[in-house]
Amino acid sequence: MMAAAQTYDAIQLLLRAMFDARHDLSGPALKAALEDPSATYRGVVTTYERAFSPTDHDAISENMLWLGTWHGHERDYFYKDDERKATVIRRKQSAAAS
């Protein structure tokens, strides 16, 4: 499930960057548009204010990950703390905050 959600958000971020680049689909133009988006994207995984920067090319941070399994049509969390915080939107932390 998480891979599908992350892929959906990645495509949305790329499409938005393509529009922000204003028809210049060169690597440098797309990179600049990804690093400085025109708007916040409220995605499936999280709300992305700025998913990327010139020095950070990971759209997620460690605080956004959780471990779990799927049993009998129900999600089961490995850590009870993750289950308690399941409905909280986890936003990306900077590398210094991790």
Rank of each mutant, 00 (worst) to 15 (best):
56 D>T: 06
30 L>R: 07
10 A>W: 02
79 Y>W: 14
38 S>C: 11
65 L>I: 08
52 F>P: 00
71 H>N: 07
98 S>K: 07
39 A>W: 12
12 Q>F: 09
90 R>Y: 05
65 L>G: 06
35 E>Y: 11
71 H>I: 11
21 A>T: 12
2 M>I: 14
3 A>Y: 13
47 T>Y: 03
39 A>G: 08
90 R>P: 01
83 E>N: 02
27 G>D: 12
89 I>H: 04
53 S>Y: 09
64 M>K: 01
1 M>I: 15
53 S>P: 02
88 V>C: 01
95 A>G: 04
76 D>Q: 15
9 D>P: 05
7 T>A: 14
42 R>D: 15
94 S>K: 04
11 I>G: 15
67 L>D: 08
7 T>G: 11
15 L>C: 13
7 T>F: 09
41 Y>C: 04
37 P>V: 09
6 Q>C: 14
74 E>W: 01
64 M>Q: 13
91 R>H: 09
61 S>L: 06
81 D>P: 00
43 G>P: 03
3 A>E: 15
36 D>Q: 15
32 A>C: 13
68 G>K: 01
94 S>N: 12
90 R>W: 07
79 Y>P: 00
26 S>C: 10
40 T>W: 09
58 D>H: 14
73 H>T: 02
74 E>I: 06
82 D>Y: 03
70 W>R: 05
60 I>S: 04
72 G>F: 01
26 S>H: 10
95 A>C: 03
41 Y>N: 09
13 L>H: 06
72 G>S: 06
13 L>T: 05
47 T>F: 02
11 I>S: 09
14 L>T: 13
31 K>P: 00
21 A>K: 01
40 T>N: 08
51 A>D: 02
48 Y>G: 02
16 R>M: 14
81 D>N: 05
50 R>S: 12
50 R>H: 14
66 W>F: 06
67 L>F: 15
97 A>F: 04
60 I>N: 00
72 G>C: 04
28 P>R: 05
1 M>S: 14
81 D>T: 12
6 Q>P: 00
16 R>A: 11
19 F>E: 15
48 Y>W: 04
61 S>H: 02
93 Q>K: 11
55 T>P: 01
82 D>I: 00
64 M>L: 02
68 G>P: 01
72 G>A: 09
62 E>W: 11
9 D>C: 03
89 I>V: 07
48 Y>H: 04
73 H>P: 00
29 A>W: 05
8 Y>I: 08
11 I>A: 13
94 S>I: 02
83 E>K: 02
54 P>I: 09
35 E>N: 10
77 Y>K: 01
23 H>N: 15
46 T>M: 06
63 N>T: 12
86 A>W: 03
50 R>I: 13
37 P>M: 10
51 A>V: 11
85 K>R: 12
50 R>D: 09
25 L>C: 11
55 T>R: 12
25 L>S: 08
59 A>Y: 05
52 F>L: 12
31 K>I: 13
71 H>F: 06
74 E>P: 02
80 K>G: 03
25 L>E: 04
29 A>S: 12
62 E>L: 14
76 D>V: 15
87 T>H: 08
97 A>S: 03
57 H>Y: 07
67 L>S: 06
48 Y>T: 01
76 D>M: 13
26 S>A: 08
89 I>G: 01
79 Y>T: 04
82 D>L: 02
21 A>L: 10
